[in-house]
Design a protein around this nucleic acid. Structure first.
Length: 270
DNA sequence: GTTCTGACA
DNA sequence: TGTCAGGA
């Protein structure tokens, strides 16, 4: 029995694939101790330690070409720098994952909020929301792929975004996305009349908007412009083929109604 | 049965 | 990075 081991045995004790070991050889960072007569690669303890170091560096996020460099020439200080860099990268990844986590929670929350609420109206307290203008649409036009491609300079991830449609009094629609900072529009905090509903086709939308206004009138709500329609495309996951919307309008306080405050959502900083 | 190289998704 | 073919 030889002291040296074959590639599959090395792979097994180091928990990596045979393919990966060959790949490291191709990239010239790990060579076998020798090649046997049958052209099998044979490895000894030296390679076990070398492979351990390579795998450690990979775990720290160091690329294979950089590992090659580092094995050849790195000083203690340079390895330290490598670790600092790796720490920063890991932190950034964790922040990304936390955002994923928040998004998943949000979808679940929204799903729970929306079930059973269809066609029901409620008065909701909302916090201030900042919106950034994304696409402008003429009255009575529909959003089609061409418009999207031409107007959307910096497209968001449509599958995870609340898309806000702001209807002004002339029925022109501004499609907006949520922003972190005060931006093109500000939806002020306050009470909003809200209704969730599901659509099979977009052409049912106008009926819903009409019904929303009828409901508001029947209950004598005084509502402030604009009409806000929020599309939650990610909720379609739970009901294939349907579109989820929330329709909103801010309820004016009596003072505002007396002053006839209008258009107070505009915040054009241009 | 195991490993090799090379190609491919 | 995994998988497959075809040969040793």
């Amino acid at each position: 029995m030889k002291e040296e081991i074959t590639i599959s045995e090395l792979a097994r004790i180091m928990n990596v694939s045979v393919h990966q070991i060959r790949y490291f050889e191709e990239k010239e960072i790990l060579h076998p101790a020798y090649t046997d007569d049958n052209s099998y690669r044979m490895y000894c303890m030296d390679q076990v330690y070398e492979l351990a170091q390579i795998l450690l560096l990979r775990r720290l996020g160091v690329s294979v070409p950089s590992i090659k460099q580092s094995l050849a020439s790195f000083t203690e200080g340079q390895y330290e720098e490598l670790l600092h860099h790796s720490l920063l990268e890991t932190t950034a990844q964790m922040e990304k994952l936390q955002k994923h986590q928040q998004f998943i929670s949000k979808v679940l929350q929204e799903q729970q909020n929306s079930t059973g609420q269809t066609e029901q109206y409620q008065v909701k307290q909302r916090k201030v929301v900042f919106l950034t203008r994304w696409i402008e649409m003429e009255p009575h036009t529909t959003l089609h792929a061409r418009l999207l491609a031409e107007q959307a300079a910096h497209p968001p991830n449509l599958f995870e975004t609340d898309i806000h449609y702001l209807y002004d009094s002339s029925n022109a629609i501004t499609i907006c996305l949520e922003a972190e900072q005060p931006n093109d529009f500000v939806l002020s905090a306050g009470d909003y009349l809200s209704s969730h509903f599901l659509l099979e086709h977009e052409n049912e939308l106008d009926q819903w908007i009409e019904r929303f206004h009828e409901h508001a009138a029947a209950h004598s709500y005084v509502l402030a412009e604009p009409l806000i329609l929020i599309e939650k495309s990610y909720l379609s996951l739970f009901s294939q083929g349907t579109l989820h919307y929330e329709i909103l309008k801010r309820i004016e306080s009596k003072d505002e109604a007396r002053e006839g405050a209008q258009d107070d959502y505009h915040a054009d900083y241009n």
